[in-house]
């Protein structure tokens, strides 16, 4: 295992689209191990996408089991060629990115998503995620399309009281 170097914006490569994985072999699984080590080495990182380390393949890792405040989660997920098929609800939340140091901002994401992805052995799985974990998956999948959370920033102010109103 080896920790990989994280590309940081303004590296143009972060804006390029990644291609689907077609071969599920030992080389891929070796890369997954390195990617996981890289994710866990980042401060507070709950997810990582392959293009963040310069491999432009549709691979995402998410692990929301390690958050400071516990959130509903599926543990460690290897998501290869992920396809989000359903989005439900919207919520503003704060995001940061290992590829965009020293900045966080508010982004609107779906609260609940349904998606499928292949694991490291090429087996397809279906998932349903909510809240923080759903946010992480959407953030990482964006990387596969060359999108950063900076492309989705909304006003710092615009979620005033919205949640409270919905709860009443």
């Amino acid at each position: 295992m080896a920790k990989l170097e994280i590309l940081t914006y303004p590296d143009e490569r972060l804006k390029q689209e990644s291609v689907p994985v077609e071969v599920f072999d030992e080389e891929l699984r070796g890369f997954l191990a390195d990617l996981e080590e890289t994710m866990r080495a980042g401060p507070g990182g709950v997810g990582i996408a392959a293009p963040q380390v310069g491999r432009f393949a549709r691979i995402v890792l998410v692990d929301c089991s390690v958050t400071r405040k516990p959130v509903p989660n599926h543990g460690f997920m290897v998501l290869i060629n992920p396809e989000i098929t359903e989005w439900d609800g919207m919520k503003v939340g704060r995001e940061g990115c290992m590829s965009v140091p020293d900045y966080t901002g508010n982004v609107i994401r779906a609260e609940r998503i349904t998606f499928s992805a292949f694991d490291g052995d090429g087996v397809r799985h279906e998932y349903q995620c909510e809240g923080f974990e759903a946010r992480a998956v959407q953030h990482e999948c964006d990387h596969l399309d060359g999108m950063l959370f900076l492309d989705r920033l909304v006003s710092r102010r615009n979620d005033l009281f919205r949640r409270k109103v919905y709860q009443k």
Binding site: G42, G44, G47, H139
Partner: peptide
Amino acid sequence: AHLEAIDTMIG
């Protein structure tokens, strides 16, 4: 007066 934690997602 409302207070909520900001749980920043770093990805």
